[in-house]
């Protein structure tokens, strides 16, 4: 990880010195254990702030729209998929972007770390081979790194960036096809059980909109939830409206969601948002054989058509 960080620093420094880019978007060390923080480097001498490890969970594609000048971005596999999706939607110009691709074997889920120490205050983390030692006042617990990874990372097949200008780090091994077992489990529930499961999850929502704002694909000038005429959903917190908000968001990102998990990671209340987003990812994959952000120049699934598109919703059996 240290080697990777210094290679990223060197690359950022070189790009800024040679004036190939005006800005490098990457990660710096954070102020909490298991936490890196997005950072913006404009001077070559500041490149040393850049870092890389298993705590770089944010999707930096979110910071690339509406930028002037040339920008380099330190991007793991899922960030690159979102970048490709944004380029395909004409939101980011490929010509002004320099992608420093980082093969990624997964990021740590702090909720899982908190669960591992039963909600006690985590003060420090040490690496020990393939494990992390989680430490706080009066406790020290060793947990396998693999067990702490985000669920997104566990099923991600695009750890290796699909597009890049330069790549730093060793490629990660390919993974088996995603079985969408979590979605299948949800689908197997009765309608009443599904409703209960969603209500239990979304009763926790505080409508801080961290999920929406963390999503690189949620870039509407006016989000439907902020619209007052018509008022699509109530401004008050209410479980049914909380579900409507997520459902609207998920439908709006159909064929656009790269399953990066940024929404899920941003949620302060630990709501399982991927339960819904992945259902849509699976639908789009099953219906159109389409995966978001893996092919440059592809039209988003719902922005195009082919004669062979299935139309099950038109057929009444």
């Amino acid at each position: 990880m240290q080697k990777l960080a210094s290679a990223i620093q060197d690359m950022a420094k070189k790009l800024l010195e040679e004036k190939k880019v005006d800005l490098v978007v990457g990660f710096a060390g954070g102020s909490l254990p298991l936490r890196s923080t997005p950072c913006f480097i404009r001077k070559p001498e500041d490149a040393e702030k850049l870092t890389w490890d298993y705590s770089c969970e944010n999707n930096l594609a979110n910071y690339l729209r509406k930028r002037e000048g040339k920008v380099a971005v330190v991007a793991k596999g899922c960030d690159v998929r979102s970048i490709v999706a944004l380029i395909n939607e004409n939101q980011v110009s490929r010509d002004n972007l320099y992608i420093i691709g980082i093969p990624c074997s997964g990021m740590v889920d702090r909720v899982k770390a908190d669960e591992a120490v039963e909600g006690k205050d985590l003060l420090a983390v040490e690496e020990n081979g393939g494990s992390l030692i989680l430490k706080g006042k009066g406790f020290s617990k060793e947990v396998k790194l693999d067990e702490l990874l985000h669920d997104t990372c566990k099923v991600c097949r695009y750890g290796n960036p699909v597009v890049y200008d330069t790549i730093i780090g060793d490629t990660v091994p390919d993974k088996a096809e995603d079985s969408f077992a979590d979605v299948a489990a949800f689908e197997s529930l009765s309608p009443a059980e599904r409703r209960a499961a969603l209500a239990a999850e979304f009763s926790k929502c505080i409508r801080c909109y961290a999920c929406r704002n963390a999503c690189p694909m949620c870039y509407c000038t006016e989000c439907f939830v902020d619209c007052s005429s018509p008022e699509w959903i109530k401004k008050s917190t209410d479980t049914a409206d909380n579900i409507m908000f997520q459902a609207g968001r998920v439908f709006h990102s159909a064929g656009r969601c790269a399953d990066c998990g940024a929404c899920d990671r941003a949620c302060p209340m630990g709501i399982n948002l991927r339960g819904m987003t992945r259902k849509m990812v699976k639908e789009v994959k099953d219906l159109f054989g389409y995966e978001t952000g893996v092919g440059m120049g592809e039209k988003p699934a719902l922005a195009t058509f082919t004669a062979g598109d299935p139309e099950p919703f038109l057929v009444k059996e």
Partner: peptide, 13 residues
């Protein structure tokens, strides 16, 4: 504000 997402996680908590 450059890295701020503009959400209300801070103010609501």
């Amino acid at each position: 504000h450059e890295k701020c997402l503009g959400c209300a996680a801070c103010t609501y908590s």
